[in-house]
């Protein structure tokens, strides 16, 4: 599954950086019915986590009220060069990961 990550590739130490993520996911609420009246089962991403050089800096629990293709943006402080790791976990065993690296000067 495709995930779009937007992390600045370079930053100065102490800078506040914005991290934006976009995943492709249907985020089916479990409230909708098909034309013949059957309930469409819930299929959502339930949690998201971001680690910066192994330390968790952001975690989110998501619910059906999140729009399809979940977009999340948050801010952190650039400390060291290294790697951001992202992880999405959802219903029906859905799991996807992504990573991005940053150079801190």
């Amino acid at each position: 599954m495709a995930a779009l990550i937007n992390v600045p590739s370079k930053a100065r130490r102490g800078d506040i950086i914005e991290i934006r993520t976009l995943t492709s996911h249907i985020m089916e609420t479990g409230f909708r019915h098909t034309a013949d009246g059957k309930l469409v089962p819930r299929d959502i991403i339930t949690s998201f986590a971001c680690r910066y050089n192994g330390t968790e800096i952001f975690r989110a629990d998501l619910f059906p009220a999140i729009a399809a293709n979940p977009y999340l943006s948050f801010f952190t402080v650039a400390k060291d060069s290294g790697k951001f790791e992202f992880e999405w976990i959802g219903d029906n065993g859905y799991s996807t990961t992504a990573s991005a690296s940053i150079t801190v000067e």
Binding site: I16, I57, A60, P70, L72, F74, T76
Partner: peptide, 9 residues
């Protein structure tokens, strides 16, 4: 250490 600002849809 994380800035308390979030955005989503």
């Amino acid at each position: 250490g994380t800035i308390p600002a979030v955005a989503n849809r």
